[in-house]
Design a protein around this nucleic acid. Sequence first.
DNA 1: CGGGCCGTTGACCACATTCAACGCGTGTGG
DNA 2: CCACACGCGTTGAATGTGGTCAACGGCCCG
Lengths: 259, 259
Amino acid sequence: MLDASAPDPCSRAADAPSLGLPCAAPCDGSREAISDMLQQLTCSDLPLRRRLLHAGDLVCRSGDAFGELHVIHSGLFKTVATTADGREQVVGLHFRGDWLGFDGIASGRYGCDAVALDIGEVWSFPYRALIAAAASRPGLLAVLHAAMSREMARERESMLSLCTLSVDARVADFLRRWVEALDLRGLRTDHITLCLSRAEIGNFLGMTLESVSRALSKLARARVIAFAQKGRRQVSIPSPQALGTYIERSLSPGPVTLQ
Amino acid sequence: MLDASAPDPCSRAADAPSLGLPCAAPCDGSREAISDMLQQLTCSDLPLRRRLLHAGDLVCRSGDAFGELHVIHSGLFKTVATTADGREQVVGLHFRGDWLGFDGIASGRYGCDAVALDIGEVWSFPYRALIAAAASRPGLLAVLHAAMSREMARERESMLSLCTLSVDARVADFLRRWVEALDLRGLRTDHITLCLSRAEIGNFLGMTLESVSRALSKLARARVIAFAQKGRRQVSIPSPQALGTYIERSLSPGPVTLQ
DNA sequence: CGGGCCGTTGACCACATTCAACGCGTGTGG
DNA sequence: CCACACGCGTTGAATGTGGTCAACGGCCCG
């Protein structure tokens, strides 16, 4: 973590031992890696646009001309895809350190809305400037690619959840992934503030809001989660791994889960 | 398409007008773009490993150390993710021009199996070599990023399908996307050779094999598709856009679809 | 010929959606 | 101040979509 020999944080990623795997510690998505990345982005000569956003504000809009990539500095964001026939779908949740806008690279237009779910800050960089800077700073490219790679892995996790789990397990898995995201960032994992409505969660998980509500109630009855006395969006998670065992139990048809 | 002024195909991407959008024609995924890309990759000094694969052969295995990215030169491939608790899930289908292995960049290990569904050829490149080459050849990076971007967009399409469509519509959408992939590559769109079993299709679409079978039968009854006289894996698609209207009709609760 | 794999179809059932009612907190206007 | 409406979450009962189980037919291969 500490790297006393490198007074200038900008040079860290470039200094990283460039052997073996192309992307080791500096882009594993951990808290330190994220801080490093953000550090690296500030003290560069990159044209940076900082924005403070409030719940409901858009980072970028589906269909708009692509030009910038956006990094989340703080806050929580959702990405929403819309089809020509009017279907709308929350396709991702994004935390500090995640990038938004990758889907615009190929087509030249952003593929979905990115919406703040809370107060948050994003930094936006012209894609062309990033690429240009990456030529002289290999660490930058590594960071970008790792972010894209992780995004793909997470989308696949969503697909797995959608395809193989029952509604109850899907909600549990949703919480598990959220906790995982918090853990990765060095945040508390015993408590989640759901800043989405039941309808949004249901949309994301491919189920109705009623099913989300019922699943959460069932999880609370099973003591896997607990609601704060006031506000049903404050969820405490006594044991993160209890979520995992709950999911596994719901897979096996074994001894019927009591109620 | 024709570019008489550039006798050396290797220089094309680098020559591409580097203004406006960073990635215009050369990475839109069209037949010409794919040919260009493959051309560009052959005549470079990149260490290239060509492989001919047969149905069932693995391009890369989940958990193996990441080192190479793979481009599909011909054939059809599926990617299969597996969880710790034993769930297995087809998470993507991949055609000529698609890349495999992006999910390994961040973690240093491939995230899923990539399996040939048919005879096919893949070219594998060391990731580090690609990155190194990209420094002197900006077109290469554009191609890579566009491929990643497209991959993400396609995964989101899958999620939309999974979350918002009924089983019948999901199967129709599956065929629609397949046809779209063929169309993009300049191939015939009036006929598909499903080289997956019903079970594999069902797994990919989050439903049982029986549901796939029923849905295909229903589509055939509705004259949206037709089976070849021999072999229920040969599907003819008289009108690709009929698939779209079928999907839309199944969305509106409107006039009940006659059986 | 027998066995295995694959695909189809039917009957039954369960899980999840739909529809509905209700409670709660909050903001607004009389 | 209370009344009221509104959004959000919860819960129950009815319905239906899709899963489960089973039987059957075609095909390939030993």
